[in-house]
Amino acid sequence: MSTYNFSHLQQLEAESIFIIREVAASFDKPVMLYSIGKDSSVMLRLAQKAFHPAPIPFPLMHVDTTFKFKEMIDFRGRMEKEIGFELLVWINQDGVKRGMNPFEFGSEEHTRVMKTDGLKQALDHYGFDAAYGGARRDEEKSRAKERIYSFRDRFHQWDPKNQRPELWNLYNNRVHKGESIRVFPLSNWTELDIWLYIMQEEIPIVPLYFADEREVVERDGNLIMVDDDRLPLEPGEKPQRKRVRFRTLGCYPLTGAIESDADTVPKIVQEMLLAKTSERQGRVIDADKSASMEEKKREGYF
């Protein structure tokens, strides 16, 4: 009997597949939020696995802030073609009309309008009652208490005092009209697990994760990539070519690169093991007080 061992990673995979299937089976209109990042790539692979040999039975949706790295958008198109899922792209047109950008409006306003509000608009527009997200509990302190099924009211708000108890694998899928659930199938994965899985399963990820010569400027201690000509250069700033990579991917003006030679997954992991800063420090948006994520979440940020 002892031969029926199941490793830690196999357990995580099985648990995620269970969750993905459970949502697909018990909600009217689920959607998978696809951020094009490495966690999304793992979640996408798990969705393929969950329904193999059938195709993924729900659409993937990308909320495009119009400031994503070009390579991310290319990668998105490539995955759509290779895997053959239904892709929805949502851009907050109100934001576009207002000429929203992170430079004049600030990172917080830009993120709120293009990402948080954009997501809410899209969910309302399509009437999705469940949305899968790739967040992990180990990412940030307040995420540690997040449920796998995170209940949101009609205004997409998360109330930390009004979350449903979650026992065993018996998830409560009941929502009233207009209410929804955010689902986090990767809740129990750690960053190391994600990388290991990408390596083991040979999951394609955006090349920006790997070190390469890229044009960057140094700003407030962050290396910002000059991804297109929309990035206004401050006086004295001069783009320089450096060998850099990204630990997380978001809007290019808001995502700091790190200098690195890691151009393979094992090298990234090696670098990570030696890292003195955690993953989210590369995001300008989280650099304020430690409870900032929690406040965003209350407003409906993922």
Binding site: S7, H8, L9, L192, Q200, V269
Partner: peptide, 11 residues
């Protein structure tokens, strides 16, 4: 690193 990752995953 590869060996380390494998060990991590197999625990």
């Amino acid at each position: 690193v590869i060996a380390y990752l494998k060990r991590h995953g197999e625990k």
